[in-house]
Structures are given as structure tokens and as C-alpha cells.
């Protein structure tokens, strides 16, 4: 019997169909296969499993996403927004010119009645880039965190995060919520992979703490910067109005759509991958079966 076993494990290696799948998939199928086959075969199979178990790299397989980078706008999020849509949602209104941050001058179209007006072409370009990044990160199964301090939009932002299966932080920001996450949460935590700020301002009119903390941790940030904000620490700044309810509504719906598109693509690719793995496993088992029958004969 011991000879048999070693033979079979050797045969398994000879066939050389060490699957690309990981252990997770393996455990799933083992139960269903065991019920169909005879006990001897199962024993053989389990031995085979054990042999390949040792060789297996324990990383779970992931979907291939490299081809999405070749396309300029893979998810078609560029068509979601246009300057006229931004105009309808009052994105062009800035604060008074006396509070204009000199670093925001590059996004300004002009000044009317001492109020800053943003150039919506530039805003549209930056918003598109940001939507694209959000969709790509959602495709790669990144954790996305919505952060803001807007009391009148807190409910909306939390609801948006909930709808796209992500996270939101709209309450008081305690220092170190990102940088010292382990102590504040009292457990090992995975920090987010993308921080979206519908408003980059804190409630006291200074920059939101999350921007600095994310920059320290090398987490990319997408932030809507009004004319009194500093866009320098934000990875993907979007110039625009961050006070009106309607413009926040627009940002929320756009980011929700982008994230859902990324997640939809991910689900599609995961399904394909699983089918492929199941097929491979079937081929492998069939080969093994035929081999066992020839050997026993």
C-alpha cells in the first residue's frame, strides 16, 4: 500500500498539473468529489492532495487586471460627467476672492462679484481622472474610505459608502485614526487603499487631518478642493464647490457609479477565473483516474 501511495503521488507529479488555484478552492471541491468516488480512490486522492498541498503556494489566485491599464478609459467613467452637468450642480462656485489660496489659482477661470469661479473644463478633467482611479482601485479589491466633515451631507456620504459596499468616516477625526490605527481600533487593521474626501476642509476651516495622515502612509487621496484649500498634499485634487448639497450629491453619485463599475468588472472576472479553475481541476482528475485504472490493470 505504501508503495502504491508513493507511486500515485509520483504519478500526480508526473502529470504535472499542479493547479494555479490556492487552498481555498481546494477545500471547497474536496467534499463534493469525495462523495462520488469510492473509498480507495478517495484515500489515493487525499494522499495526492497532501502531496500537492505541501508544494502549493498558499496565496489565493487573483484575477488578471493588467490589460485594463492599456485602455485609457476602461470603465467609461469619462462619459459620466461633463462641464454642463457640473455647472448644473453649482460646481463652479468658489469662496470669496479674499480667501483664495494662491495654489488654487491654476484652476480658476475668473472672479465675479468678488467670488471665485472655477474653470469647469479643468474640473471635469480632474474629476474624470479621479473617477478612473476609483474604479481601478475597486477592480483591484481595494478598500475605499469616504472621509469628510460636512454635517449637512454626513448622512448622504454614509449612505453612498453603504450602497457601494465601502466605508465612511464623517464624524470627529481623532488624531492617528489612520497612522495609529492599531491602537485606536485595539486590533490589527488594514488601512484603506484609497481615501475619498468630498470636502478636503475640516470643520474649523483648516485642512482635514485625514489628508496629512494618508499622505504619510502613502495612501492615495481623492479630494474636492475649494478655493480656500491647499491641493498640494492630495494625490488627485478636484477643484470645485464643496459646500453646496447639490454638488456633494453629484460627487457622491459619480463615485458610487465608478466604484460599482469597478466592482462589477471584478465580479465578472472572478466568475471567469473560477470557471477556468474548475475546468482545470476536472481535466486533472480525469487524467488521474485514467492513470489509476491503467495502473490497476
Amino acid at each position: 500500500m505504501s508503495l502504491n501511495m508513493s507511486l500515485f503521488s509520483f504519478a500526480g507529479r508526473l502529470i504535472g498539473t499542479r493547479p494555479v488555484n490556492g487552498t481555498r478552492w481546494f477545500h471547497q471541491t474536496k467534499g463534493t468529489l469525495a462523495s462520488v468516488r469510492s473509498s480507495e480512490e478517495t484515500a489515493v486522492e487525499s494522499n495526492q492532495n497532501l502531496a500537492s498541498f505541501e508544494e502549493e503556494d498558499l496565496s489565493t489566485p487573483d484575477i488578471e487586471v493588467d490589460d485594463t491599464l492599456e485602455h485609457k478609459d476602461f470603465f467609461g467613467v469619462g462619459k459620466l460627467c461633463s462641464p454642463s452637468l457640473l455647472f448644473q450642480h453649482k460646481v463652479h462656485y468658489g469662496h470669496k476672492v479674499t480667501s483664495l489660496d494662491p495654489r488654487m489659482k491654476q484652476f480658476v477661470y475668473g472672479i465675479r462679484s468678488s467670488h471665485v469661479i472655477f474653470d469647469l473644463d479643468i474640473a471635469n478633467y480632474h474629476l474624470r481622472e479621479a473617477l478612473n482611479i476609483a474604479a481601478h482601485i475597486a477592480l483591484r479589491d481595494g478598500i475605499i474610505l469616504f472621509v469628510s466633515r460636512l454635517p449637512h451631507c454626513a448622512n448622504l456620504i454614509e449612505q453612498t459608502a453603504k450602497d457601494c459596499g465601502e466605508y465612511a468616516h464623517v464624524r470627529q477625526w481623532r488624531a492617528g485614526t489612520l497612522t495609529d490605527i492599531k491602537r485606536l481600533q485595539r486590533m490589527e487593521c488594514r488601512p484603506p487603499d484609497l481615501v475619498i474626501l468630498p470636502s478636503a476642509m475640516s470643520e474649523f476651516g483648516s485642512q482635514h487631518e485625514a489628508v496629512r495622515e494618508a499622505a504619510k502612509l502613502n495612501i492615495p487621496t481623492i479630494g474636492v478642493v475649494d478655493s480656500n484649500c491647499n491641493p498640494n498634499l492630495i494625490t488627485y485634487p478636484i477643484p470645485g464647490n464643496d459646500d453646496s448639497f447639490s454638488s456633494i450629491q453629484l460627487y457622491c453619485s459619480l463615485f458610487k457609479e465608478a466604484i460599482l463599475r469597478g466592482k462589477g468588472e471584478r465580479a465578472k472576472r472572478l466568475k471567469l477565473l473560477e470557471e477556468e479553475l474548475a475546468k482545470e481541476q476536472n481535466i486533472r482528475l480525469n487524467k488521474l483516474k485514467s492513470l489509476t485504472s491503467t495502473l490497476s490493470n
Binding site: 462641464p83 454642463s84 455647472f87 463652479h92 491654476q106 484652476f107 477661470y109 465675479r112 462679484s113 467670488h115 469661479i117 474653470d119 469647469l120 473644463d121 479643468i122 478633467y125 480632474h126
Partner: peptide
């Protein structure tokens, strides 16, 4: 302008000059 092609006129121009636009038909508010 932010990595854009600058050969065209800004698309905010016709939007701002539209009749119904608040703040632009108002003059000094």
C-alpha cells in the same frame, strides 16, 4: 491648464452667459 488642450474656448463661457444664470444676470448682488 491642467494638462488640457488649450486650443478650444472654455466651455464655461456659454454656460455663464446664459440668461437664467444666477449671479451673472444680477449685476452687483
Amino acid at each position: 491648464r491642467g494638462g488640457l488642450d488649450t486650443n478650444f474656448q472654455s466651455s464655461i463661457c456659454p454656460l455663464l452667459s446664459h440668461k437664467t444664470t444666477f449671479l451673472f444676470q444680477l449685476g452687483d448682488p
